[in-house]
């Protein structure tokens, strides 16, 4: 990424953040929609593991999204001179989606009954997942283009060597997302199994209740 891809003529070294920022944002949006798809699985089967998948997917996508927003802001400051640009549809629609998904965890917190929590969270995840593309279209129509149109429907307009690096870094971030997702799933499952074992061995009274967590129990 730093050595292979050519330096951008107008932006120079700063342009390298593009290989981190854009994949982060794309992976995060896809992660939100992936969470919505997992939530459909929960509503169809009623199996808690789907809800766990959806929760972890959205949680991870939220972290990626915040990373994308911060890197994007740095890039905007460097290339346009402002931390935040309003007439930029991709940025604004991303912020709206992020604001929406930030409410996912408070919503889970405020429902006590675990079964109802899973059900409501799934409904939310589906609606919000469908909201992602729709919101993008609406905001894009509302504002003029400032972002370099790198990925249009007609194909990417990047020089081949830059395009290659971009695809590689996109792939890398997708793999990172998938790995983190699997890792988190394994950790959550292991924790709940340990709790169950402790409860059978020690009895209900000796096992401390879980602390504040919005995760499915």
């Amino acid at each position: 990424m730093f050595f292979y891809a050519p330096l951008d003529v107008t932006q120079g070294f700063v342009q390298k953040i593009f290989y981190i920022h854009v994949p982060l944002a794309i992976v995060s949006l896809c992660g939100f929609m992936f969470g919505g798809a997992m939530a459909i699985g929960y509503l169809r089967t009623g199996d808690r593991k789907w809800d766990m998948r959806s929760y972890v997917a959205i949680h991870m996508a939220l972290i990626f999204g915040i990373g994308g927003l911060i890197t994007g802001s740095i890039w905007a400051k460097a290339s346009w001179g402002h931390w935040w640009v309003w007439n930029e549809p991709t940025l604004v629609s991303f912020l709206i989606v992020l604001l929406l998904f930030c409410t996912y965890q408070p919503m889970r917190f405020s429902i006590e009954d675990p079964e109802r929590q899973s059900r409501y969270a799934s409904v939310f995840a589906i609606v919000a997942g469908a909201f992602v593309p729709l919101n993008y279209v609406a905001v894009q129509m509302a504002t003029a283009y400032v972002h370099p149109r790198v990925l249009t429907l007609g194909g990417a307009n990047l020089p081949p060597s830059m395009g290659f690096v971009f695809v590689v870094s996109l792939l890398a971030f997708v793999l990172l997302y998938v790995t983190l997702w699997k890792y988190e799933m394994a950790s959550k499952n292991a924790r709940s199994q340990v709790r169950r074992l402790r409860r059978t061995l020690l009895g209900d009274d000796l096992v401390r209740p879980v602390g504040r967590s919005a995760a499915p129990r």
């Binding site: 709206i96 989606v97 409410t103 729709l134 905001v139």
Partner: peptide, 8 residues
């Protein structure tokens, strides 16, 4: 939840 959903 409602306000972000209604933005578009």
């Amino acid at each position: 939840i409602g306000l972000p959903l209604l933005i578009p």
